[in-house]
Design a protein around this nucleic acid. Structure first.
Lengths: 191, 191
DNA sequence: GTGATTTCTTTACCTATGTAAATGGATTTC
DNA sequence: GAAATCCATTTACATAGGTAAAGAAATCAC
């Protein structure tokens, strides 16, 4: 619970009463490697805070091709955020790449706190703004940079991740095939 | 001002007092074709609401290549949203593709209203959530679909835009060159 | 209206990256 | 520790899409 408190305080400190109410909504949940936190096609109901472990978020196209849109490393929120906020069917999958420990809360219960605790709604606003900023940053990488530049940014954004997950997940994150990632690695190694 | 009211009411109705305070911050501004609303490298200060006209938002890479990330059509917010919320230097450009009429407000003045008017902060939360959802939707298009599919979605998302702006702006939005867009159009026409 | 500019389309050629398949190393399983 | 599986790498070939340049068409300026 402590890491969650630190995370929130960095956004905007909560009053003691608000933190009480808020933190009470969370319970511990564990995932084993390979297990899904959410799947597409369902309504998202829970938001989670990652205490330990690694997950990937990915889209799946109609013909079954997967695209890893994000890796989650500890001390961040996970969940089908667009589904939670829009109340529409979730379109992303989130799967544990290692055993994970989470704190989870029912999102509707959090939303019910907004009218009485404006500082909690403020946290939600700041979180949404932060998510938007992250997405825009990633958009820039995707549309403006080639795969070698993106690979270097991946290594900077997720140091140590490369040793813990299979290469094809990284290739998928970069929007290329493992074949192409192999070529890039060979090219870099030759320098 | 009326269209702005309608837009906000759809997110979450404001009290009369809040609307008074909020709407008072906006003034009318016009742009002529080709003029910039914001440029990269500056701090964003204003948020705008587009009454009429068309703008494009684009990134520029270090070697001068432009990528059109979005077109704005009437009755939406424009501005360097990531810069406004993060207080960091703005990295996107927004340029009028036709003459435009906007309502603009100083964003810091809006933020000052949050503590006293929680329903205004709620609007900001909902807006941030909506922006995130739009970005995620666009991300799916970019990473999962080929350029022909994206072209068809563009035509659906921005009907009539195709007749009003040069083709190379559309190509840039699709992440391809005008040459390639020409090939796609020819291919579609042949069917 | 006429000339100048901008925009669209096409061609020829080139490059990055995809697909499929083979190989071999690493890791897991019992 | 042998078998089975998973994973990284490489090769050969195919393809989408880029670059540059040219001509045609449309639009703008005066």
């Amino acid at each position: 619970m402590n890491e969650l408190k630190i995370f929130l305080d960095r956004l905007s400190p909560l009053s003691t009463a608000s933190w009480e109410k808020f933190s009470n909504l969370f319970t511990v949940k564990t995932l084993t490697k390979g297990e899904f936190y959410i799947r597409e096609g369902q309504m998202a109901k829970e938001i989670g805070f990652l205490n330990s472990g690694i997950l990937r978020a990915f889209y799946q196209s109609e013909d079954g091709i997967e695209y890893n849109k994000h890796f989650f490393i500890p001390h961040c929120f996970i969940g089908g955020y667009a589904s939670l906020t829009s109340k529409k069917t979730n379109v992303i999958n989130q799967q544990a790449l290692t055993d994970c420990e989470l704190l989870v809360a029912n999102y509707a219960d959090i939303e019910k706190l907004y009218p009485s605790f404006p500082d909690i709604e403020r946290i939600s606003r700041l979180l949404a703004e932060q998510f938007f900023i992250q997405k825009e940053q990633r958009e820039i990488e995707i549309v403006l940079m080639d795969s070698e530049q993106r690979y270097k940014i991946f290594q900077k954004d997720f140091p140590s991740l490369e040793q813990h997950i299979p290469q094809y997940h990284i290739a998928s994150y970069l929007g290329i095939t493992p074949t192409q990632l192999g070529r890039i690695r060979r090219k870099i190694a030759k320098r």
